[in-house]
């Protein structure tokens, strides 16, 4: 327990902290929302009634977002973090766009 105090998280620079907060909270939400839409489409695709798939995916969305929040505040590799929380929503939205078009 004692070594906790001696190894503080290295997020001291304020700018990095703000970037992390925005990426994890806002980016994480958009990533979750896109995953919910995709997940619903996927579950509907394998035979679940559409409205049921949407509710199930959205309910699970809260747990996905919770997982992303916890990971986002524990991960120290800032680049990986930005890749997931900024690139992830874009990728998922792109997939959703393709899926809706096709």
């Amino acid at each position: 327990m004692a070594d906790i105090a001696s190894s503080p998280p290295r997020w001291q620079p304020a700018a990095l902290l703000v970037l992390r907060l925005l990426a994890v909270i806002v980016g994480g939400y958009y990533l979750t929302a896109a995953l919910v839409s995709l997940g619903a489409a996927g579950m509907a695709g394998i035979g679940l009634p559409g409205s049921e798939a949407v509710v199930l995916a959205a309910m699970l969305g809260f747990l996905v977002y919770l997982g992303l929040l916890i990971w986002g505040f524990a991960e120290r590799r800032m680049r990986l973090l930005c890749l997931v929380f900024l690139g992830g929503p874009l990728l998922a939205q792109g997939l959703l766009y393709l899926q809706a078009g096709g």
């Binding site: 919910v36 839409s37 995709l38 619903a40 489409a41 509907a44 798939a53 949407v54 309910m59 959703l96």
Partner: peptide, 12 residues
């Protein structure tokens, strides 16, 4: 659930 994920229906 539908307030917080208002666009969950989008792919379906």
């Amino acid at each position: 659930v539908l307030v917080y994920f208002p666009n969950a229906w989008q792919g379906t």
